[in-house]
Design a protein around this nucleic acid. Sequence first.
DNA 1: GACGGCTAGTAATACGAATTAACGGCGCAC
DNA 2: GTGCGCCGTTAATTCGTATTACTAGCCGTC
Lengths: 322, 322
Amino acid sequence: MSLVLNNDSEAASRIAPATRERVLQVIRETGYVADPLARSLLRQHNQILGIFTYEPVFPAGSADFYHPFLEGIEACAESLGCDLLLFTSAPVTGGTRRIFHENNRLRLADGCVLLGREIPREELTRLVQEGHAIVSIGRRDDVDIDGTAPARLPWVGADYAGATSELARRTVVLGHRRIAYAGSGEGVESAVDRLDGLRAVAPEVLQERSAGRDPADLLAALLAAGVTAVFCEHPADAMALHGAALARGLRVPEDLSLVGLGEEDRPGALEPPLTCLRIPRREMGWQAVEVLVEILHGTSDNHQRLLPCALVPGQTLGPRQI
Amino acid sequence: MSLVLNNDSEAASRIAPATRERVLQVIRETGYVADPLARSLLRQHNQILGIFTYEPVFPAGSADFYHPFLEGIEACAESLGCDLLLFTSAPVTGGTRRIFHENNRLRLADGCVLLGREIPREELTRLVQEGHAIVSIGRRDDVDIDGTAPARLPWVGADYAGATSELARRTVVLGHRRIAYAGSGEGVESAVDRLDGLRAVAPEVLQERSAGRDPADLLAALLAAGVTAVFCEHPADAMALHGAALARGLRVPEDLSLVGLGEEDRPGALEPPLTCLRIPRREMGWQAVEVLVEILHGTSDNHQRLLPCALVPGQTLGPRQI
DNA sequence: GACGGCTAGTAATACGAATTAACGGCGCAC
DNA sequence: GTGCGCCGTTAATTCGTATTACTAGCCGTC
């Protein structure tokens, strides 16, 4: 039976064509399908790729930030003939989902794509220690495994640093000398990369936190420091600053240039359109699955890919008025 | 071991506290986790719910029509502690994905949510025949199983008929006598329901196909027939007709009332806002999972739920000008 | 002191498919 | 005529866990 189902070269030689046809006939009649569970138990792989998100996969409020990643993942998985498993069973403790719990179901999947702005270090460490095949979407710092050299985590990231540097160069060329960075610039890798990219070109950056701050106050502080161009970690901050600038009678970009270091939540919402980045999210999703397959097959040995961000010209970055 | 892991009432009585603690200690040290595959093989259920879509789950182009359904499904699955399996391995033959293929992996999931505008009848029939636990999102006609009475398919649908009837009533109250339906009104259940809902209130409906037709031509035909209000199967058609009306120097709703029998793709895109329906998509996703669980648990016996659509007043439906 | 009942721990079996080993029958060759 | 090899089939074993049956040991009671 199984010899006929999995028509291997070996089986072909072993089974007589007549018998083979008879078995196939019965299979057609009864509509028999091998229990994929039992097969997997033996084969030790499932053709299932897991997706683990540290935020809800299908977030209601936010303008579907994760959607394009999932698009790419789905498209690639489909091309590979793999199913996708969403680990929605992982319980939420202390605000974030945790992949490791008493009955973690990680092994249902052959490998796992990790998605989320921030992934707890201890989870990453344990994932690596236990030898799970994982790929992070978004660059992650290497994890320290006690004793040994830091483990190079597989990831597919967006080149925030490079894109920010390029925007910074253009800003400098436009005459700006006092450039500010609005945002934390620390903690999460994506924030660090952005600030690093800006600093690489403009070392004298003025950094101002924006979280939970009144845009008008933030703007006032920036202007007082003589800033003429603001790089915003979150495009939403750029929108807020734009509003505050208008309220103050300032023009963008004539009096103040604004750059968003990410995608606009709702393209077209701001007039004039924001100068910002386009994160290759779909492509990142696709390539994450590619890397995962490379890991599973043992091909290639570099499991870190940095994809370029396209620059969205917009109209909020202009020459500095003398 | 398994006795300790699954701390049942029985196990509690069987295992000595000391032994129990010793085993737990070893489990903690080794980080052992039971292979979910092997467990499932024995238990005959997985805590996995399948999602099968007859279109890509994460469609790139369309404005994420399916996203809210998935949101609801995810939220409910999470509350149940179930994982979600996306059947991306199903091959596409003849334009649509097919759930049944030589190695269908349906049995990986305990039950399956079916998503898609149109689901091939033969697939539904076979799903029912083979006794799979399924729920369709969107009403589906009963399927004929040869010999027996038509099988009542489980589904969670939007009450297009009721909502359309209500809109029709309002339209009649506003003085409109010649009402048209733009769209196929046949084939897919959702289209049939809409036209039926309109006909229930306004039997003398003029029906015009809109697919692949120049909006200007369609509009001309409608006006020639003396139509003063158009119910559009697809809101996109309403948008197109609106454009054609403007081009012709007509005002909406003064000269022509437009109603969309669905959600606007991009709310706010049309000015004035379209009078249309709000499909309770998130709620449908949630309840689909609820129904699925009812089926699996054998509780309840009515597995068909019709959820009301909210009416979005908009400003494209107005009194008929005498 | 012996037997019965209860408990704790261990061994066996089942889950469903796949792989492999064993086996029976047949034919060919020596 | 017998032995070996080949072909086709069947039985056994494997995957990792859960359940059940069974056994050894202990205590209490008669």
